[in-house]
């Protein structure tokens, strides 16, 4: 395959990484933005979403699509509910103290990871995609007669991969609408901007925190359910998304949802393209270097604001 079509194929892989990363990282960003909590266990909520998706699909007989559609609704709800319980019984009890919440979520990381290992075992588990037709992709080739549409051999994707991108964009749009157009979004943004003043206007900040922590975890789980028919579910899969999410949130600007999405596209596309052309390890090295540069030259991130 020529370089152009090959780059196009690599970009498509990058777009899938970016889509899932955006969902996962926006969850982390929301939690930090509203609660000022650095959730080190975020990757484990992602992993739990994937493992639960496998478990749910394996429990439901019949067409694989049925299990998947149940999993995409139920797994994020279970993970979100679990996160709300963690907020209520752990983070709330230590008064959301920044240092102690880091230690607490490190503990939570190991508890979730090892509980999953003990419950579901160490094997990587596949989940069948609800649909997976191969789709050949066209390419525009410049010729003497102008641009001509050609169908290069091997330039293709699957309907499911396109669905992942479309689903992530739709979910992020819904989230944006909720944050900017609804009463609950207004309450979350007010709490993010000034927690004390939110309380002084009748907002139950503890309820908002529980909701945001649950929502953040549910978004990570949703990203994982979407990706699990492409990758596989296993108990150690949370570390990469956690690292990439932190990279994205730092580059985008702590607490900035828009910045997080932009950075997720940047990092996801880079990760996808570099992984295809070179190695996934080089992609991670480049992403980490980018964080270092952002921290040096723009410490608050691309879209972050200096906090008082």
């Amino acid at each position: 395959m020529d370089f152009g079509p090959y780059l196009f194929a690599a970009s498509l892989e990058g777009a899938i990484t970016a889509a899932v990363l955006a969902l996962t990282a926006v969850g982390l960003s929301l939690v930090f933005g509203v609660m000022r909590v650095v959730n080190v266990a975020h990757g484990e909520f992602y992993m739990l979403g994937a493992v639960l998706a496998w478990w749910i699909t394996s429990m439901i007989a019949g067409h694989p699509a049925l299990g998947f559609w149940v999993a995409i609704v139920v797994a994020p709800l279970i993970v979100g509910a679990l996160a709300m319980l963690c907020d209520r019984f752990i983070l709330n009890k230590i008064n959301y103290d920044p240092e102690r919440t880091i230690v607490a979520t490190i503990g939570l990381l190991y508890v979730i990871q090892q509980s999953t290992l003990m419950t579901f075992g160490p094997e990587a588990r596949p989940v069948e995609a609800p649909f997976n037709e191969r789709i050949a992709l066209p390419w525009l080739e410049p010729t003497n007669a102008g641009l001509q549409v050609i169908w290069p051999t091997g330039l293709s994707t699957t309907s499911y991969k396109l669905f992942v991108i479309a689903a992530a964009v739709t979910i992020l749009l819904i989230l944006w609408l909720v944050m900017t157009r609804t009463r609950i979004g207004l309450i979350m943004r007010a709490t993010q901007l000034d927690q004390e003043m939110a309380q002084a206007h009748g907002i139950d900040v503890n309820k908002v925190y529980a909701l945001v922590f649950g929502l953040g975890a549910a978004l990570a789980a949703l990203g994982a359910v979407l990706v699990v028919p492409i990758q596989q579910a296993y108990y150690l899969m949370g570390s990469d998304p956690l690292l990439l999410s932190f990279i994205v949130v730092i580059i985008g600007g702590l607490g900035s949802v828009l910045g997080t999405v932009v950075a997720a596209v940047l990092i996801g596309m880079t990760d996808g393209i570099v992984s295809v052309f070179f190695t996934p390890t080089l992609a991670k090295i480049l992403a980490t270097l980018l964080v270092a540069f952002v921290l040096i030259f723009k410490p608050n991130g691309l879209f972050g604001k200096r906090r008082e």
Binding site: R189, L193, E196, M197
Partner: peptide, 10 residues
């Protein structure tokens, strides 16, 4: 409050 403390981005 002193200093107004509005929800600045709203």
């Amino acid at each position: 409050p002193q200093g107004r403390r509005l929800f600045s981005e709203l």
